[in-house]
């Protein structure tokens, strides 16, 4: 069962505002999907390992040398942010004024 307070808690964790009028529908939808995936509990996994990666790769390290992370200039990347100033991304203050 997904309660109203569960939805509010998830919204807070996921950083998505949920309006009071939407809570019931979300409760219903999430419960419905969770009921469906519930059947996994019947699967006998025994000693099966968790599969997180299908390539078999692990700890891929880049050469220890400076390189551009993308083929783009800083100005282009900066322009993508809604609020910026010269070479900085602008963010509202993290601490509230008293």
């Amino acid at each position: 069962m997904i309660s109203r307070s569960d939805i509010h808690r998830l919204a807070e964790l996921a950083r998505i505002e949920v309006h009071e009028s939407e809570v019931e529908k979300l409760q219903h939808d999430l419960e419905h999907v969770l009921e469906y995936v519930e059947q996994l509990s019947r699967a006998e996994t025994g000693m099966a390992e968790a599969l997180t990666n299908v390539t078999g790769l692990s700890n891929v390290a880049a050469d220890d040398a400076a390189r551009a992370a993308v083929k783009a200039d800083t100005a282009g990347l900066l322009r993508a942010s809604p609020r910026h100033d010269q070479s900085f991304v602008k963010v509202p203050s993290v601490w509230k004024k008293k």
Binding site: S41, E49, L51
Partner: peptide
Amino acid sequence: AYYAKAQRVRSLIKR
């Protein structure tokens, strides 16, 4: 119950 279990089932599907 969910994520860890699903990852184990994923390895069964690959198998």
